[in-house]
């Protein structure tokens, strides 16, 4: 479903070329649970950004559900992100002035989905994610775990093909983190492809497939136990 072929991403920092991704090839099957680990600066976030269409490679090709997405226009990229990709961030990135429900509905709002449908879909997720008593609270009135639940609900409300998570538990205490991991794994069990970038081996090792990135290259790719 996701296929990277010889993808490189080169940044120039202070006149020097830095190869954040060095001819990486990677195929991810539908429904897979993949963790990306590696030291800081190894290129795992760049890999995630490329997968999430936030960044475009300098060379190589990227096929998402059979479609080459390396040469799409801004508008096409935005539309593809909207339909096929869900993001979860370490710092949640909720809009402070919007309520939990409004934050969850934001991707549908941007996609021009009518209000009634938005309400229907967000209600279902609010119920399923244990936020039923907090739909009208603003982010600063929610706990860290609740904020990340809102963020996950937002990421999946468009029913994307793949969920990309960048250090989803990095800003949470242990028990909230465990709850978030369970929630994501539950979504994966229902068929959603899940890619998690993490520093935390405890989380990384739960994934069905683990890859390790060092200096822009995949140095280890194995099914986990």
């Amino acid at each position: 479903m996701i296929e990277l072929r010889e993808v490189s991403r080169i940044f120039s920092v202070g006149g020097q070329e830095v190869r954040a991704m060095d001819r990486i090839s990677l195929a991810i099957e539908p429904g897979e649970y993949l963790s990306i680990m590696g030291p800081s600066g190894s290129g795992k976030s760049t890999l995630l950004n490329i997968l999430g269409l936030l960044d475009t490679p300098n060379s190589g090709s990227y096929l998402l559900e059979g479609q080459d997405v390396t040469s799409l226009s801004d508008r096409q990229l935005a539309a593809t992100r909207s339909r096929k990709i869900g993001f979860i961030f370490q710092f949640f990135h909720l809009i402070p002035r919007l309520t939990a429900r409004q934050n969850i509905e934001l991707p549908l709002l941007l996609a021009g989905v009518p209000r009634r449908q938005r309400l229907e879909r967000s209600s279902r997720l609010i119920e399923a994610f244990g936020l039923a008593d907090r739909p009208h609270h603003r982010p600063d009135e929610l706990s860290g775990g609740q904020r990340q639940r809102v963020a996950i609900a937002r990421a999946v409300i468009n029913e994307p093909a793949v969920l990309l998570a960048d250090e989803p538990t990095g800003n949470l205490d242990r028990s909230s983190g465990a709850g978030i991991v369970e929630l994501m794994e539950d979504l994966n069990h229902r068929g959603l492809t899940l890619v998690v970038v993490t520093h935390d081996p405890e989380i990384g090792e739960r994934a069905g497939r683990q890859i390790r990135v060092v200096d822009g290259r995949i140095v280890h790719d194995s099914p986990g136990g």
Partner: peptide, 16 residues
Amino acid sequence: TGEIGLCKALGASQLQ
């Protein structure tokens, strides 16, 4: 800035 970046990640085009 963060909000704008987020909207883009969530599928907003430049025009939007």
